Computed example of a mutant assay.
Amino acid sequence: MKTGFSYETPIGTLWILQKDDAITNIALRKPENFKEEETPLTKQAAEQLNEYFRGERKDFELPLGVHGTDFQKKAWSALLEIPYGETRSYKQQAEMLGNPKASRAVGMGNNRNPLMIVIPCHRVVGANGSLTGYAGGLDVKRFLLDLEKKSK
C-alpha cells in the first residue's frame, strides 16, 4: 500500500506518495487508496520541491518508482533530458524517442506522468511555443516555466 502526505506549495497543495522506498506520485489532486502518513522520504521530496520553488534546485535527487507502459516510461525518461529553464515541443520530444511522428502519443504519455515537476512535463510546449495541456492547468504550467526562466 502507498503512503502519502500533503504539503503546501506556491501552486497549491501537493500530494506526495511513496511505495516501498520510492516516490510514486506527486499531484495536485488528492489520490485514492493510500494511507495518509508523512515519512522521511515524502518529507525529503517536499524539501526538494520547496528548494525548487525558491529557485535553489534544478535537479531532484529522489528514488522514483514510476509505473506505466514501456512507451510512457521512455517518454518520461526523455522529459528528464530537457534542461531546466528550457522547453521542447512534442515533436522534438518524439524525435528524442526516435519516432518524429509520435507527437500525439508523446502528449498522451506526458498526460499520464505521475510525478509532476520532478519529471518535468511542464517543459513541453506546442510546436509554435504555445502553452498546451497540463494536468495542473495552464496557469501552473506558466508559473513553473516563469520560475525556471527567472532562476536559470
Rank of each mutant, 00 (worst) to 15 (best):
M1H: 10
M1T: 07
K2R: 14
K2M: 11
K2H: 14
G4V: 11
G4I: 07
S6F: 11
S6I: 07
Y7T: 03
T9V: 03
T9Q: 14
I11E: 03
G12M: 09
W15P: 04
I16T: 00
L17A: 03
L17H: 00
L17E: 09
A22L: 04
A22V: 10
I23L: 03
I23M: 04
T24V: 14
I26P: 02
I26T: 09
A27I: 07
E32K: 08
E32H: 05
N33S: 04
N33P: 00
F34C: 07
F34G: 08
E37N: 05
E38L: 03
E38K: 15
P40Q: 09
T42C: 11
T42W: 05
K43L: 12
Q44W: 01
A45G: 03
A45F: 07
A46F: 07
L49Y: 05
N50D: 05
E51L: 12
Y52A: 08
Y52F: 12
F53K: 01
F53C: 06
R54K: 15
R54N: 05
E56H: 02
R57L: 15
D59V: 15
D59W: 01
E61V: 06
P63L: 11
L64E: 01
L64S: 01
V66S: 03
V66A: 08
H67E: 12
H67C: 06
G68L: 08
G68D: 02
F71I: 07
Q72T: 04
Q72I: 02
K73T: 06
K73V: 14
K73S: 08
A75F: 03
W76G: 01
W76S: 05
W76C: 06
S77D: 15
S77E: 10
L79M: 14
E81R: 12
P83A: 10
Y84D: 01
Y84E: 02
G85W: 02
E86F: 06
E86C: 12
R88Y: 00
Y90I: 06
Y90C: 07
K91Y: 02
Q92K: 15
Q92Y: 06
Q92T: 01
M96G: 10
L97T: 02
N99Q: 06
N99A: 13
A102G: 03
G107E: 03
M108V: 10
M108N: 02
M108K: 13
M108H: 07
M108W: 07
G109L: 08
N110Y: 09
N111Y: 11
N111M: 13
N111F: 07
N113W: 10
P114M: 12
P114Q: 05
M116G: 04
M116K: 08
I117W: 05
I117N: 00
V118E: 02
I119T: 08
P120L: 12
P120A: 13
C121L: 11
C121R: 15
H122T: 11
R123F: 13
R123I: 13
V124W: 01
V125G: 02
G126P: 06
G126L: 13
S130L: 13
S130K: 15
S130C: 09
L131Y: 08
L131S: 04
T132Q: 10
G133T: 10
Y134C: 13
A135F: 11
G136M: 00
L138V: 09
L138S: 08
L138A: 08
D139K: 15
D139A: 15
K141V: 14
R142C: 04
R142D: 09
R142S: 05
F143T: 10
D146C: 05
E148L: 12
K149I: 13
K150G: 06
K150I: 13
K150V: 12
K150C: 06
K152S: 09
K152E: 06
